[in-house]
Amino acid sequence: MRKEHKIRVGISIGDLNGIGPEIVIKALEDKRMLDFFTPVIFASIKTMSFFKNHMNSDISFHGIDKFNQLIDSRINVLNVWKEPVEINFGEENKTIGTYAVKSLEGAVEALKSNDIDVLVTAPINKQNIQSDTFNFPGHTNYIAKQLNGKSLMFMVTDHLKVGLLTDHVPVEVVGKSITPDLIKEKIDLMYQSLIMDFQIRRPKIAVLGINPHAGDGGVIGNEDDDVLKPTLSQLRDDGKLVYGPYAADTFFGTGNYRNFDAVLAAYHDQGLVPFKTISFGEGVNYTAGLSKIRTSPDHGTGYDIAGKNMADASSFKQAIFTALKIYNNRNSYQKLTQNPLKLSQKSSQKSFDA
């Protein structure tokens, strides 16, 4: 058991030819950030010094090889490699992909062993990370497997939360992928996350239709009538406040999303296009449902602006603070559930306040 300490935020560095290192440095340049947590960057002190010099930043790093060398209130860089790395900004490079994987693997191992408390991942390139030993479509799938859990891709801000029934799968297999079991699994994960991670006692969830106009009574596909509606009905019978399916083309434009605590979209672009349109720059990608906390910014590698000192670190900063908030909320939830009397009193007070 570790002694009391500031929350340790592990940071995987992402694609070195992209904007990942830049947004990490920009997010941590403000020394006041260290009042809230202790960062641990999984990279190398040589590589991070290169980016510091390239950006003319006055940020200060503390290089370590082991966690017993870590210093609270310093920006620690854990060396997961020591050799020089050739950086070519904006270039998709297989070798650079191996360093992104080294960083991620080191960070996840530290998360599993409780050497860090939460993980924030900088953007990767999904093509150049692929190899015989690493074959995952992205962070979420790899982390879920490592933590032996089921996960929900959950895009969150304070005012909008959108989860996905199917995430990184081709559109042609979306319909076949959506089953009653998958719907129940994802809604359960969302429901529990809203309660435990975001302190929403009685979550109200909207579910978007699979087909245009939620199938129009079978005119545009039968999946909504045959699969989605009966499953949502069962979940309501179990006491969950789950509504839909709603036609996705009007749901966000009319502002209907404001009537719910979260929205479950059928597939990637159905959920992420409106989410990023409404919240780009302040949104966070959260991997809900796992025993550990992982967040990331809501954007990619930004090859077109890499190395130009133009990247906006707002979403990465928000990813850090969201991870801290969820960490504290989970601790509060665990304390409450260990004391049912306090939980009952809190629920009663909320009902009275309402």
Rank of each mutant, 00 (worst) to 15 (best):
I64C: 01
G289K: 08
A43E: 06
K3I: 14
T287C: 01
I19F: 03
G138R: 07
D298T: 01
I7C: 13
I64M: 08
F321H: 13
D216G: 10
M55L: 15
I96K: 04
L28G: 05
N128T: 15
P39Q: 10
T133Y: 14
L165T: 06
D298Y: 04
I278C: 02
I195N: 04
M1S: 15
H5G: 06
T140K: 02
G90A: 03
V101S: 01
E172K: 15
E105F: 02
I200Q: 10
G217Q: 11
L34I: 06
G97C: 11
G281Q: 03
N53E: 15
I19G: 01
N141D: 15
N339E: 13
G302T: 09
Q192I: 13
L264D: 00
N79S: 07
T121E: 06
S233V: 04
M155A: 12
F61H: 02
S57E: 07
G97I: 08
A206M: 11
N135K: 13
A214H: 12
F321L: 10
L336R: 12
N53K: 14
N53D: 15
Y267G: 00
S177K: 12
M55G: 02
G255V: 05
N93V: 07
V219E: 13
K325C: 03
M153G: 04
Q345I: 11
S291C: 03
I129C: 05
V77D: 03
Y327G: 06
N17M: 08
L232C: 09
Y286I: 02
K126A: 07
I326L: 09
P212M: 05
R258G: 00
I320D: 00
T133R: 08
L111A: 08
R294S: 00
Q127E: 15
L341W: 05
G300W: 05
N328W: 10
V171W: 04
L70R: 12
K66D: 15
G281V: 05
V162P: 04
N222G: 01
H139E: 04
E92S: 11
S351T: 14
H213A: 07
Q130N: 09
M33T: 10
K102L: 14
I178P: 01
P39N: 09
P170E: 08
K276G: 02
D249W: 08
G253Q: 11
F275Y: 07
I23R: 03
